[in-house]
Design a protein around this nucleic acid. Structure first.
Lengths: 344, 344
DNA sequence: GTGAAAGCGCTAACAC
DNA sequence: GTGTTAGCGCTTTCAC
């Protein structure tokens, strides 16, 4: 089996206390002794056990990260950001992918508690329904710092990193209006989620500010999946008083929307303008030039991790509740244009 | 602090052995006693410490996963597959994202060893250069099961899941040839990597089999990044004896290629046919109909994890070296067509 | 500068 | 059925 600290102590002819001192660079050790110990470590190919250390120090230097769909680049980038900061602070990440299921999420929380991790960053998949309270209790009963990533767990006492969805949707809508659009359709996300509701609010705000009446027939409720946006876009393209612009409220739905647009042989922005919330890297790289509002994902990850670390280093009860709201950025690529003569 | 097994034992009026029995469902416990214990657990909101258990049992039920870029959906899907199987077997995942740097990868290996994880799944970022040997030694010295994911660590004694790149590229090229193409360009990945070399081989094989001479001027070396493919595609489009088809050897490069094609206002497949190795979900959802060879990513993840589990459950020295090669699938969407009258 | 001893929270013989 | 005991590999007082 693997060598232990005792083996090192024995072969170096010292006590394990001294070995421990060398390992952790704590206390004074005579240079000569240190070298003897280092040599023994080398010889026996010894690696200290983080497990034993954790048990002894009551610190695991590990945090839990729970995401609903790891294969969505949105979360990939968040994790990338988290991972960067974690790395700088020598913290490890236990990852859970919940596939958007409540059971897996609760199971993940249970396991993380067993693992005595020091904090959690989570993007709750949980809708704000009747289970919310039970869920919050579970999360609180962990009794460790929690950081929500752009989640929608309301009325809760958790720190978190959020996107200003209202402002983002407002900016996006404004950009369309400034181009001359007034018949602007919106495809929302699942209205059970806070971001979806906020984005709708931002959209409405921009209309109202510009004295454009909010036309309910232009408000379509999707569910974040591309299929829903596909279906809805087809519907929109068929409308008699067809909007001149569509504001699509998630990266996956942008794809569904564009699919419908392709199929119908509609030109962007010649026949209709498109604005997206969240970017789709692939489309941009390809040069499809879809304008979008971008929540800075990597930065979200980094900020979330920094927030968590802040809390980790605070003792006991005085953990601060801190919510950071990041401003999404408007990136115009051309798809927001209004081309008069081409629109009915 | 959190309750311990001793607290439970005390409040339930039993020894901690009995508590342990209840926790692990091992040995016989009188129903009455069990209930007393369960009640105490409930009351004290007790969760057993996986750390202590690991130290005691010498099992952590945790595996390490190391990927080069977590934000690339290719790896996202692999992790998704890994995570599914891990979940079924109650194994946890410690994740490392190396951002394609050797230092981070080596650091990750060191940490994983400290954490006494039970196995590793890794997609090495390491090119097969002079450092290869040192790297292999590091990996071997961990002395735990390792599964390579589609890696290019040659001459090594590790289990792994691989894609049959030769066959894949062969199939893709054949599909183009069958459509009538004979002037087929290829944009390869970094030729230091095994997959890139294999894919080129498959391409050549198909040409040779069809008595089409391999034209070196049609072979372009990219580096997996989209910028390289963009540059190369521009070059290709400018050629005098321009190919009628381009076979692009990675998902990111497909994007770069398509960007150039868009910019030059070239029609696919009207003016030129495109075939990709690896899919780009976004483009497909959007309906851009790029034909591609798809290495089954989620399945790769699942298979890799299953392979690892196989090895975990085998004792000591008789770990099998097992390499599983998955066949990529050809998916035709239309971009491979040969449209005679439109080609010069 | 260094070591002895206790303890972190659990499991696993073994005895009763 | 249940308890006693030793031990997993480390850190951390405290004493020398």
């Amino acid at each position: 089996m693997a060598a232990t600290i005792n083996d090192i102590a024995r072969t170096a002819g010292v006590s394990r206390t001294t070995v421990s001192r060398v390992l952790n660079d704590s206390g004074y050790v005579k240079e000569e002794t240190r070298e003897k110990i280092l040599k023994a470590i080398q010889e026996l190919n010894y690696t200290p056990s983080a497990i034993a250390r954790s048990l002894s120090t009551n610190r695991t230097n590990t945090i839990g990260v729970i995401v609903p769909e790891i294969n969505n680049p949105f979360f990939g980038e968040i994790i990338k950001g988290i991972s960067q900061v974690a790395d700088e602070h020598n913290l490890n990440i236990i990852l859970f992918n919940t596939d958007d299921t409540r059971d897996k999420e609760l199971k993940a929380l249970k396991i993380l508690k067993e693992q005595r991790i020091q904090g959690i960053i989570i993007t709750p998949t949980y809708p704000e329904d009747k289970f919310n309270r039970e869920y919050l209790n579970t999360l609180k009963s962990l009794n460790i710092p929690v950081v929500l990533m752009d989640g929608h767990v309301e009325y809760s006492n958790f720190s978190g990193v959020f996107i200003d969805h209202i402002k983002g949707a407002f900016d996006g809508t404004m950009a369309l209006i400034e181009e001359g659009h007034s018949k602007i359709a919106i495809i929302t996300g699942d209205m059970n989620s806070r971001p979806a509701r906020d984005r709708l609010t931002g959209y409405k705000n921009a209309l109202v500010l510009n004295h454009i009446s909010v036309n309910k027939r232009y408000i379509f409720h999707g569910n974040y999946k591309h299929e829903s946006a596909y279906r809805i876009t087809k519907q929109i393209l068929d409308m008699e008083d067809r909007p001149t612009a569509i504001f699509v409220m998630s990266n996956m739905m942008i794809l569904g929307c564009m699919k419908a647009i392709y199929e119908e042989n509609v030109n962007v922005p010649g026949d209709i303008a498109i604005m997206g919330f969240d970017k789709v890297d692939a489309l941009n790289i390809v040069g499809m030039n879809i304008s979008f509002i971008n929540g800075p994902t990597i930065e979200m990850g980094r900020t979330g991790m920094e927030l968590l670390i802040d809390n980790l280093y605070k003792k006991g009860g005085n953990k601060e509740l801190k919510r950071i709201t990041l401003l999404p950025k408007l990136v115009l690529k051309g798809s927001e244009k209004y081309i008069k003569n081409k629109c009915k």
